[in-house]
């Protein structure tokens, strides 16, 4: 099924949890936050939250920044 990850279409298997997706993307060890359809998914729910068709997923992290 198709989902959107950080603005890009991606083909993923149905029934994937966020935890499994992050594993597949090699992001398991990273300090991240995940938002799906503009709702934040707490880290504790990563193993149980199953992705759906057309979910808009944002995966974000902290980076260096001043203002702007």
């Amino acid at each position: 099924m198709i989902v959107f990850i950080n603005g890009e279409n991606q083909q993923i298997d149905s029934g994937l949890s966020i935890e499994k997706l992050l594993e597949q993307l090699d992001l398991s060890q990273k300090r991240l936050a995940v938002e799906i359809n503009q709702d934040i998914v707490p880290r504790s729910e990563f193993p149980i939250h199953i992705l759906k068709e057309a979910d808009k997923i944002e995966i974000v992290q902290a980076i260096g920044g001043g203002s702007y």
């Binding site: 603005g7 300090r31 936050a33 974000v60």
Partner: peptide, 21 residues
């Protein structure tokens, strides 16, 4: 110290240290 929140680069720089580290 201030930090910004941005999309993770997926598939690029997998070994790059995270700023928070």
């Amino acid at each position: 110290i201030t930090i910004a929140i941005r999309r993770t680069n997926i598939g690029q720089n997998p070994g790059e240290p995270n700023l928070l580290d």
